[in-house]
Amino acid sequence: MNALANPNFVLMVEGLTVSFDGFKAVNDLSFYVEPNECRVIIGPNGAGKTTVLDLICGRTRATSGKIAFKGQDLTQMREDQIVHAGVGRKFQNPSVYEDLTVFENLEISYPRGYSVLGALVFRRDAEVTARIREIAGMIFLDDMLDERAAILSHGQKQWLEIGMLLIQDPELLMLDEPVAGMSVAERRKTAELLNRIIADRSVIVIEHDMGFVADIATRVTVLHQGKMLSEGSMAHVQADPKVVEVYLGH
């Protein structure tokens, strides 16, 4: 347990393997995320990037290997317990509650009243409202609070989902392609938003847009066929001939 509780790392992934009917989507992967680090995972389609996030947040169970978050073994915890431990995850396709308003979407993510009873007696007090307004301002949706989430544009839904994570204030934030499908203007605003929110927490981002990656990454991990191909600074991996070969192209 002591090895898991190394204070230099927020997240430790060691020997992580998941096998789907014999196919190893992630194969003996190890990496370590430091406090306040922004780790970007890149790699060709099918490299296992999203699966890694699924494994960390408990959506998929590891076949073998360890995932430790601040000394807690995540492989033994339920999804909601992992969230309570401080891990937030954004999905690749924006996943918001279309039948509810932007305000209600954010309210559900407000970290209070998680049990059935807690949810029944939850009250929308001044503290909740103030926090929701604050987050809505950050994600450029302060005029949209009373609108149903279904009418939001694709980019706005992405922002809303990021806002839903922010309101939980997770120590480790995992974002799966946060700028995919966005217009150039939206992309710029998102980069600005992300730069602001990654400042005081650890972040793992999956992204294909190299310009965007260079902007935000502390370190980059390149995955290929479920295995680590290269790891280091953006300049380091861009210069790595193996990475150029399988992913970046000549």
Partner: peptide
């Protein structure tokens, strides 16, 4: 009903 996984990964059982 619309996004079960999102609810789960917002910390609800």
């Amino acid at each position: 009903r619309t996004a079960e996984d999102r609810v789960r990964f917002s910390g609800y059982d």
